[in-house]
Amino acid sequence: MPFKHKDLLGIEGLSPEDIERILHTAAPFKTLFTRSIKKVPTLRGKTVALLFYEPSTRTRTSFELAAARLSADAMSLNVDSSSIKKGESLVDTALNLEAMKVDFMVVRHSVSGAPELLAKSVQAHVINAGDGNHEHPTQALLDLFTMREKKKKIQGLNVAIIGDILHSRVARSNIWALTKMGANVRLCGPATLVPQEMRSAFGKSVSVTYQVKEALDGADVAYVLRLQTERQLDHLFPSLREYHEFYGLDARKLAWAKKDCIVMHPGPMNRGVEIASPVADGPQSVILDQVTNGIAVRMAVMYLLAGGKV
């Protein structure tokens, strides 16, 4: 069954079959990493432009490696957030790239909806690497891949997502992905960071609790979100110390979950804030697996978009 999408803008627009296809395709790509030659010639000659309007080393590197391992040529454009306010508009930049016959554009932007605007204007395949608070689809896909790798399934898993849900595109993409694949999602954080709309905005019921103990009770996966310390200035929480005390994942709280609960984090971590170092580095943590899997999943996405017939 062909992958009928020109772009990957979000999980919202994917069917469970699409998600299954991507996860299934990522597996053989992962096995390549153990070879001495980590490349395959599949996307040889294709050009991948990375437009990262928000700084990010790890996601950008992950995409660059994914492209390189498919034998495509990856190039990163030097853009930063000031380019948004002055100078060339996003669409203008993209049209210029299109004129240079770029095949893929991987976009990270601080404004929700920017990749969608782009995708409408260019023929290249647009991959959303994170837009505003909206979605970060490849993150959710690699998270699902990791969960299935460790837990052998996704359906029926109890997944607790803890932290700043309000501002998190990672949370939104994960909620879509997990609900589409039949997992039970529990959102947890202080009321200032977990808006009421989350209960119903995603089509399927997702439970919301302000108590970590309740969220982790019987949890198979503890997914910890990064807390941006600037949020303190918006009166969203009083202090980092208080946040860590009530919501930071440490050994004491992790013990409330199932014994084999895995600990996940999209990175980068604020150690000592949303997650304690012993937990981040402990035996239940699969955070580094997420990083490895990220490349395989991104390779799978590029492969499927390239060969997909829309």
């Binding site: 062909p2 992958f3 299934h24 395709t25 597996a27 053989p28 790509f29 096995t31 395959v40 010639p41 599949t42 996307l43 492969y303 499927l304 390239a306 060969g307 997909g308 017939k309």
Partner: peptide
Amino acid sequence: LDITLYRDDVLTIAEQPTVKETD
């Protein structure tokens, strides 16, 4: 051995083939 990723027509054939296991 699955040779899908090495096919010279991998991106152009009508039904994109599923990549299978290599072991």
